[in-house]
Design a protein around this nucleic acid. Structure first.
Lengths: 195, 195
DNA sequence: GAGCATATACTCGTGGCCGGATATACGGGA
DNA sequence: TCCCGTATATCCGGCCACGAGTATATGCTC
């Protein structure tokens, strides 16, 4: 039976089990340690559902119940050959084919006309500030990672995100200015609608 | 009881009902007509769930069963004052506060090291081509909208998306080139891991 | 050595999203 | 006039995500 690629958390699970067999809690801990949870949404409930799903599709296999001292039983999973193939194929797809996604800000900005222009201006300025803060934080973080000897390839997703955030910031600034100066095409209508 | 802002489709519903009372099917049709479905994910199942939720929170109210000829019964909903307030407040939040989102490409690119560099290069090139096509399509579309006399404010979300796509394209090009030339920091390790 | 916070490890119930199924009406061509 | 494709309008069942809850073990402090 074919596996339905929904939750990218499943991809992370496959990738981690490719390194070595682990039990779910360990998967979560490892993702935390490597800051992967900033890139792929992680929470326990989903993790166990996802692991079950992968096991049902035989992409991973339940290999043992281990027990250390009197700790709770741990069920360890390992990657199967089919799982390895799925990891490869899914990853290729994620990279080569842009996914149809719906960023919330697009929804918001598409309705900005419902708010009066001066308020829109304020809100956009606030967003720009938040975005800038985020950029600063990422700059600091990447500098630290670099110092620790990690090559760019190891934090390439942060590099990508920074590029995108900078682009968003530039757009926000330019649109905010246009709103302030009244040079947005449609400004006349916008002002008149809010009186 | 407070409403849980999950599905942005609910925001679209509030915005449409602000114009005039409608029944769910009409909401969907209107969204289609205005190309809003490209910005906010729409499908019938979710729509009826969302409308129910809004009604339960009394942000919209069931005003009538109308019937035209022998067509199926239609249940028409209208915006309440609380709904109007919610629309405003939610919209402000969407614009001012960047939402924590998890674009799939970030997940993919973060694992690009699992693929051999030459293949990564190929996949990234394919993505760049797809992104470029998308940009071209948007350029044509916006030109048409402009011709029809629609001001930029009316398709501001397309403007935003084009900016973001261009930024992604530039990043893809630059990273692909670096991969080809072997100038990515970590290239040595990358090549050696795949032999 | 008692007590409390934290770490380990998993489970379960709720609720929301989705796609496909259903049923009727209308319009146009043979 | 009959048929078929499309438009109108809604409903339902399954699946999946989520976060809170549970239970034990370990370590740290006083």
């Amino acid at each position: 039976m074919k596996y339905r690629r929904t939750n990218p958390l499943a991809l992370a699970v496959l990738a981690l089990l490719w390194e070595r067999p682990m039990h779910p809690y360990e998967l979560a801990a490892t993702m935390r340690e490597r800051h992967q949870e900033n890139v792929i949404k992680l929470n326990y409930g989903s993790l166990y559902t996802v692991v079950d799903g992968l096991a049902k599709a035989e992409l991973i296999r339940h290999v043992e119940f281990s027990r250390e001292g009197k700790r709770p039983e741990r069920s360890v999973y390992a990657l199967t050959p089919e799982g390895r193939a799925e990891l490869d194929s899914w990853l290729r797809e994620l990279i080569a084919v842009p996914a149809r996604e719906y960023p919330q800000f697009e929804a918001g900005i598409s309705m900005v006309g419902l708010l009066p222009p001066d308020e829109a201006q304020l809100l956009l300025t606030r967003r720009a500030a938040a975005v800038e803060e985020h950029i600063t934080a990422l700059t600091t973080l990447t500098a630290q990672l670099k110092e620790r000897g990690l090559p760019r390839l190891a934090w390439i997703e942060l590099d990508y995100r920074m590029t995108m955030l900078r682009a968003e910031h530039a757009w926000l600034t330019s649109f905010t200015e246009a709103t302030r100066d009244g040079t947005v095409d449609g400004h006349q209508f916008w002002v008149e609608a809010h009186r």
